[in-house]
């Protein structure tokens, strides 16, 4: 099972249900929605698809998020240079 973690502890701020992350290595700004930001905050520690999906399910009771959607989101974060596979 693949494990994911933040590439570095970049500066992030939470404003109006959106998260803004400053990547000071690549000089980029990435904006996430609230659930995305929640996932990002969990990724300070290593996470699997399963652990993230379960945590989101516990936090957002009315929202059904599948592992597939989490995986797609993590792929996007990797493309943005914010997340990597944990070694």
């Amino acid at each position: 099972m693949a494990r994911y973690v933040q590439k570095s502890s970049y500066e992030s701020t939470h404003l109006d249900n959106e998260w803004i992350i400053l990547n000071t290595d690549d000089y980029t700004v990435t904006k996430l929605n609230d659930i995305g930001g929640f996932c990002w905050s969990l990724l300070e520690a290593e996470q699997t698809l399963e652990s993230l999906t379960q945590a989101v399910g516990r936090e957002y009771l009315e929202t059904k998020v599948s592992e597939r959607e989490i995986e797609e989101f993590l792929s996007q974060l990797m493309e943005c240079g914010l997340v990597k596979y944990a070694v």
């Binding site: 990435t30 904006k31 929605n33 998020v65």
Partner: peptide
């Protein structure tokens, strides 16, 4: 907010980024 999403991703203008460090 029905699933985690990247809303936007964009580079910072060089002049701005440069002033972070120097």
């Amino acid at each position: 907010n029905t699933r985690p999403m990247v809303l936007s991703h964009q580079p910072i203008r060089f002049e701005t980024a440069h002033s972070w460090n120097k």
